[in-house]
Amino acid sequence: MKLFPGCTVSSRLPFVEAAVRYIAERLDIDLSPSGCNMCCFEPTGLRSVDPEMWRSVGSMVHSMNGGESIVTLCEGCNLSLSSSERALRTEEGAADASKRLSKVGMEFGIADVRGLLELLHENIDGIRRLSKSPADGTGAVFPGCHGEYAYKGRGGDAAGMMSEVLDAAGCKNVVIKKPMCCGGGLQGVEDGIAAGILQDTVGEFRDAGADFAVVSCVFCFRRLDISARYPVMHISEVVARSMGWEADVSRYHRTEL
């Protein structure tokens, strides 16, 4: 299985990759580096600006990981590469990708894209067995929109999976059954709308009695931590900590937990 950290984890929140590696080692999951650690050509803005480039980048990432499973650590990557995978599994999409790749001397391939939540959920018994130090307080379950959509496309329920993983890690949690979003897709584009959406979401967390949010999307992490100044933990961090991970990651939390 290959690990695809994505731009944000690699350059801004590397602790997520470290936490995932810690979990994988303890659960005996073989996670080798992805054959192509590059931008997924982000599904919100870039795909809007240049759909041709999005197709090319998706084809390339799949080509370099053909026949393998790749686990994404960012729900934007999950959505982008899952959408590519769906397209590549059609006759038309495969022909298009082959043509693009031949221009740069590469061969067609398709990877099986999975998100971190799926990986954790598949190993829930191991997490339960190895969890010894649960997080204090109650976490609001917040997989984020792109994760919800990507997992739904594979028949999964992101909030349900996250809640069960948190239960296994001994972390109290609350699932809020309302549409929530971090507003990140409009950050820097329509800041007023983005801020209003973020405040709505934080308001839901507070109303539900949560002490912090738990996310699986690193973009949501940054929106809550930096823009909303609301305490947030990444699911990898919660699970790794419960298993005994002791790395100091305070520098990545601008809002104290």
Binding site: C145, C181, G184, L186
Partner: peptide, 9 residues
């Protein structure tokens, strides 16, 4: 269309 978040909800 740029006032859409592309959240897919």
């Amino acid at each position: 269309p740029w006032t859409c978040l592309m959240c897919h909800r």
